[in-house]
Nucleic acid binder design. Structure first.
Length: 938
RNA sequence: GGGAGUGUAGCUCAGCCGGGAGAGCGUUCGCCUCACACGCGAAAGGUCACGGGUUCGAGCCCCGUCACGCCCACCA
């Protein structure tokens, strides 16, 4: 029957094989099916330049878990995959590659460059997609899309046209962030501020006197961090209510080098407290000054070329690089006596997040999206709960953005990307926005056009991702069925870049929101809490982790202990622990298979898991584990519905390892063993006897073994329970650890006969998600087994403290006046004895026949005695019991205090009071027993 | 400057509706117990950052303080 499983779980080879089977069986693929409810997730498209890092692994594991969970719950699940063209990083990458060959991108020309870029994309662009498969991602690969494929291109053009038509897209001169190295504008969101040590130069400009002469004695002093921008100054500003300068407002100062007379203006932007309360105004090179300049109708002087060298407006500094110019200007100002002083100054400098070049604010004609109207429904959706952010605390972050939105600069001076569908008439230079080159200029009738050379910000197409991937702008069945999608999973760091833009784009184009829930996860950091970065060299390649420990171990590690929105640190020790867990599950399964085989050798069909009805003859331990399993199913499902994946998987883990493996399997062993003795061959019996001779293992008394044989088949009930609990646990674990669970599941189900087979899913990934079942609640059995567990723990503890060798078996007496308690021990004798290393257990009502110096474990209404006279140190025993007595005294004091408190009695809920009373009673009973023991010993 | 966080065992982190402090790793002790040494059993280890308050009762709620990162803004 069942296949052999290796002794240790080894994911190598196995994962690829299983993944391939899933793909061949087409399990990942979704088709429109009106009879079923869809559940859709669109992947945050990874950059084609990317290789898989732990962030992707995290993001995609979360998505895969949700998808697999929903798939098993019966939803028609679609996980829509694809990749992003990532304009800047791809273009930079290709330029670097060209440089190695000594080629500039201009040498190739636009078309040649794009050809090269596509070749590059075809060759390397698929890497990350292959890597996602290694993780186990159950994406519908047949539907894979690319942000620059034909459909997405149409979508982008369509949206551009529509938004331009409505006036949301406009072209205008604005001060933008310019990256002189990437040679393109970048959006505000792409600017990263870095604290840098710099200087604050205090400079003074001479005043222009009434007669137009330049004063040699009167100056206006101010401070600046960027002295070179003075070449573009068109004013100096003071606060309108600043009395110190009231008389100077409207006058002029003289700007050295460029020899310009510029006005003193009054503007509230100026902070009177800072420095001298005077600010130089450079509208061409500072965003704030740009605003001031607009208010005062100041000229805008651009002093810089695109490569950040000074241009012809910079007088004699023309041609110098910006920092060289700065140095020279400072030097000359000093010689002219206009430099007052220099102080060290730490300030934040805007840099380009991709290359960390200091950005240069420049005035450029760019395309913008007007945001104030578009953003309103996006903000509203989150405010009124139509879209839920998880965790909700990130709402504040979201609103911070929506409330302070600025127009979105969408043009980029790059070649790789969606070219802006705008055409300039060669005759009149007027612009026409159209899907294709117009025939005739609507302004002058001209027939020759030049298309805008710029491309769109990468995020412009990503913003359309949830609907463009489903066929928009066409009206497709897919779009109608799968859209709006359900959950978006991404890191909180791209709420602004992506999430908000998808929300308003979808609302604008589709008239509805793209998803109802956004699950935001944190970042994975290294073991010291640092971000992973190339410069730190602390990168961890997920593929290596998978190679070494398996994808399941990686997935489990990433999810365990994490809650939405929180960062987590990555440790190899934790991966090891996850791997160990996979091995644990593996071996538990191996144990069950082994026992099934043994039973099968005796001619029984033992694939009981195929039968879902509760069989006859289940014992307390079986009921207990089924009941615990049932709770686990409910709690795990609830937590998964709440996106608390870390909590959910923790519960599966604890259940499997602690309750199922460490307790239930151990409880069941003697039952399976006694079955061996019954149907076992002679050799088996002989071996047992031989074993027993030199280890003093507890022997099943002959009479009892016979009794078992006549009894309802206990080992059959155990085998049924083992299989049922295992299969259910595997299902609960499957979204987290898809490979090992599938492999084991296949081992159990794989060769079931065709009749049984039809009742069973052929793969765990399309099997049914377990449901909470009232029929599996066994409160009484849970209480009984708790009692046994408590007793076993006590005995183990005692033996450990007394240094009793595990091989040393002892007689155990359970003394209780309570008949029900005695009966619990009687019923569970078989495994109680094994678990507590007892040679024999005897239940009785009093201490008859028990030595006074026996060691004891005190329970509420029972005392367990272990005669260990030759081993027990009486004083140690007294000490142990005294410690126990003290502990109980403390608990009793607490409990009595509470119950004596009238306010507690009058205000606490009745069930809490009852609970406390019960506890008190138990403490009192136990306490009395301990005291009795102590007095007997002393 | 604004915002939202975090602070719990040596380390990393859980801790739901307020009702006797948990896990993993590490440490110590004992075990190759016929599923698993990637294992089993046991133990030690905590002023739940600090100070107030609310409450019969606070790790959890409220106020304040300190520390640490994060996001946003960008005062020249």
């Amino acid at each position: 029957m069942a296949k052999e499983l290796a002794k240790t779980y080894d994911p190598k080879g196995l994962e690829d094989r299983i993944y391939q089977t899933w793909e061949e069986k087409n399990y990942f693929h979704a088709e429109v099916d009106r009879s079923r409810k869809p559940f859709t997730i669109v992947i945050p498209p990874p950059n084609i330049t990317g290789i898989l890092h732990l962030g992707h692994a995290f993001d995609n594991t979360v998505q895969d878990i949700l998808i697999r969970f929903k798939r098993m719950q019966g939803f028609n699940t679609l996980w829509q995959p694809g990749t992003d063209h990532a304009s800047i990083s791809t273009e930079v990458r290709i330029i670097q590659e060209l440089q190695k060959e000594g080629i500039q991108k201009e040498d190739l020309g636009r078309e040649g460059f794009l050809k090269r870029a596509w070749e590059w994309k075809e060759e390397y662009g698929g890497t990350i997609v292959k890597q996602l498969r290694k993780l186990g991602s159950s994406c519908d690969w047949e539907r894979e899309r690319f942000t620059m494929d034909e459909g997405c291109n149409r979508a982008v053009t369509e949206v551009f046209l529509r938004m331009h038509e409505k006036g949301y897209i406009y072209r205008g001169s604005r001060i933008i962030n310019w990256c002189p190295v990437c040679n393109t504008s970048i959006s505000d969101a792409e600017v990263e501020y870095e604290e840098q040590n710099g200087h604050l130069w205090h400079i003074k400009y001479p005043l222009v006197e009434e007669d137009g002469s330049i004063s040699k004695t009167r100056f206006l002093e101010f401070a600046t961090t960027r002295p070179e921008t003075m070449l573009g100054d068109t004013a100096v500003a003071v606060h309108p209510e600043d009395e110190r300068y009231a008389d100077l407002i409207g006058k002029e100062v003289f700007l050295p080098f460029v020899e310009r007379r510029i006005p003193v203006v009054a503007d509230e932007y100026v902070d009177r407290e800072f420095g001298t309360g005077v600010v130089k105004i450079t509208p061409g090179h500072d965003p704030n000054d740009f605003e001031v300049g607009k208010r005062h109708h100041l000229p805008e002087v651009n002093i810089m070329n695109d490569d950040a060298t000074i241009n012809e407006n910079g007088a004699k500094f023309a041609g110098m690089e910006r920092y060289a110019a700065r140095k020279q200007i400072v030097k000359e100002l000093e010689e002219m006596g206009l430099l007052v002083r220099v102080e060290d100054y730490t300030h934040n400098v805007g840099t380009h997040e991709r290359c960390h070049t200091t950005v240069e604010p420049l005035i450029k004609k760019q395309w913008f999206v007007k945001m104030d109207d578009l953003i309103k429904p996006a903000a509203e959706a989150v405010r009124n709960g139509t879209i839920k952010l998880i965790p909700p605390r990130l709402n504040a972050m979201y609103f911070n953005w929506t409330d302070n939105i600025r127009d979105w600069c969408i043009s980029r001076q790059l070649w790789w990307g969606h070219r802006i569908p705008a055409y300039y008439c060669d005759d009149c230079e007027e612009v026409t926005v159209a899907a294709e080159t117009p025939d005739k200029c609507p302004h002058c009738g001209g027939t020759h056009f030049t298309q805008d050379p710029d491309t769109l910000d990468t995020w412009f197409s990503s913003a359309l991702w949830p609907f463009e991937t489903l066929g928009w702008p066409d009206k497709t069945e897919d779009l109608d069925y799968f859209f709006p999608t359900d959950v978006l999973v991404t890191g909180y760091d791209i709420i602004f870049f992506w999430v908000i833009r998808m929300i308003f784009s979808s609302y604008e184009q589709m008239g509805t929101y793209p998803f109802h829930t956004v699950m935001l996860h944190g970042l994975i950091r290294d073991s010291e809490g640092r971000k992973f970065s190339k410069s730190l060299g602390n990168g961890i390649d997920p593929l290596e982790v998978i190679e070494q420990y398996g994808a399941d171990a990686l997935r489990l590690t990433i999810i365990t202990g994490n809650s939405p929105g929180n960062d987590m640190r990555f440790y190899f020790e934790r991966v090891e622990n996850s791997r160990n867990f996979a091995n644990k599950v593996w071996n538990a399964s191996r144990f069950i298979l082994m026992n099934m085989e043994k039973a099968a050798e005796g001619g029984e069909d033992v694939r009981y898991f195929l039968d879902t009805k509760l069989p006859e003859g289940l014992e307390a331990a079986d009921h207990w584990i089924l009941s615990r399993m049932n709770d686990m199913v409910r709690e795990v499902t609830e937590n998964m519905e709440k996106f608390e994946l870390g909590i959910a998987v923790g519960k599966v883990y604890d259940f499997i390892w602690d309750e199922f493996c460490d307790w239930y399997i151990e409880m069941v062993k003697p039952r399976l063993r006694s079955a061996d003795a019954k149907d076992g061959s002679q050799t088996c019996a002989k071996e047992d006897a031989a074993d027993a001779a030199h280890t003093s293992r507890p022997q099943i008394p002959q009479a009892e073994s016979d009794a078992q044989a006549h009894h309802a088949p206990s080992h059959i009930a155990a085998l049924w329970t083992l299989q049922t609990v295992l299969i259910t646990s595997l299902k609960m674990l499957h979204p987290y650890m898809p490979f090992v669970t599938e492999e084991i599941y296949q081992t159990f189900v794989g060769d079931a006969g065709s009749a049984e087979r039809s009742r069973f899913a052929e793969s765990i990934m399309i099997s049914d998600w377990p449901l909470y079942d009232e029929a599996l609640c066994f409160a009484e059995d849970e209480r009984e087994i708790s009692l046994i567990k408590e007793a076993v723990r006590g005995i183990r503890n005692l033996r450990s403290e007394m240094n009793v060798a595990p091989s040393k078996k002892t007689k155990v007496f359970v003394v209780s006046e309570n008949e029900a308690t005695r009966s619990v021990f009687e019923k569970s004798r078989l495994f109680f004895e094994t678990l507590s290393h007892a040679s024999e257990s005897v239940c009785q009502t009093d201490k008859t026949g028990i030595a006074d110096d026996a060691a004891s474990v005190v329970l509420a209404d029972a005392v367990i005695y272990i005669p260990l006279s030759e081993l027990v140190d009486i004083s140690a025993e007294i000490e142990r019991l005294t410690k126990e007595k003290e502990r109980l005294e403390k608990e009793l004091a607490r409990s009595k205090g509470m119950l004596a408190n009238e306010k507690f009695l009058s205000k606490a809920p009745p069930e809490k009071i009852a609970e406390e009373k019960e506890k008190q009673q138990k403490y009192e009973q136990t306490y009395a027993q301990v005291q009795e023991r102590l007095s007997a010993l002393q």
